[in-house]
């Protein structure tokens, strides 16, 4: 599987781990970003919608991949981002780094996700489930409504 992906298909941790296989690399770090059920003014997030300026985002992801390999001497890298609608709990991004030792793998993975968030033209927007209206209390002066 390629090191950089920008796809509408779901992302798999198992595939990412397999892509990082390298007998020279004793340290493998995988980071997955997932959609949280955040609350917004009483409503809860049902899913996020991700969009990208695709050619620019791919260029950015490739530059980050190359930068990480050079800077941290990584053996293998995974930099995968999903676009389109993603439900709560779904994986939006996977960043993986394989290096001979753990320190470079941790540093490389952290550097890549930080750079991606700052530099890659990808945007998310929330789709919320509105809060349920509270059941009305019957008015004491008018008595219960008919029915």
């Amino acid at each position: 599987m390629e090191a950089v992906r920008l796809t509408r298909q779901s992302l798999s941790i198992a595939s990412a781990y397999a892509s990082l296989a390298d007998p020279e690399c004793g340290g493998v770090v995988l980071f997955a970003g997932r959609v949280r059920p955040d609350r917004l003014q009483g409503s809860s997030v049902e899913r996020l919608e991700y969009e990208a300026d695709r050619p620019m985002a791919l260029r950015s992801l490739n530059a980050i991949e190359q930068g990480a390999i050079r800077r941290f001497r990584l053996g293998r890298v995974v930099l995968w981002h999903r676009t389109g609608p993603i439900g709560v709990g779904g994986i939006s991004v996977i960043v993986g780094a394989a290096a001979p030792h753990r320190a470079q793998a941790f540093l490389g993975a952290r550097w890549m996700i930080d750079r991606l968030k700052q530099e890659t033209p990808i945007w998310k927007s929330e789709s919320v489930r509105p809060a349920r209206p509270r059941p009305r209390r019957p008015s004491r002066t008018r008595g219960r409504s008919a029915g």
């Binding site: 970003g33 985002a57 996700i113 968030k117 700052q118 530099e119 033209p121 945007w123």
Partner: peptide
């Protein structure tokens, strides 16, 4: 010309 609001990927 592309207009890129602040990024929010990840």
């Amino acid at each position: 010309v592309a207009i890129h609001p602040p990024y929010s990927g990840g």
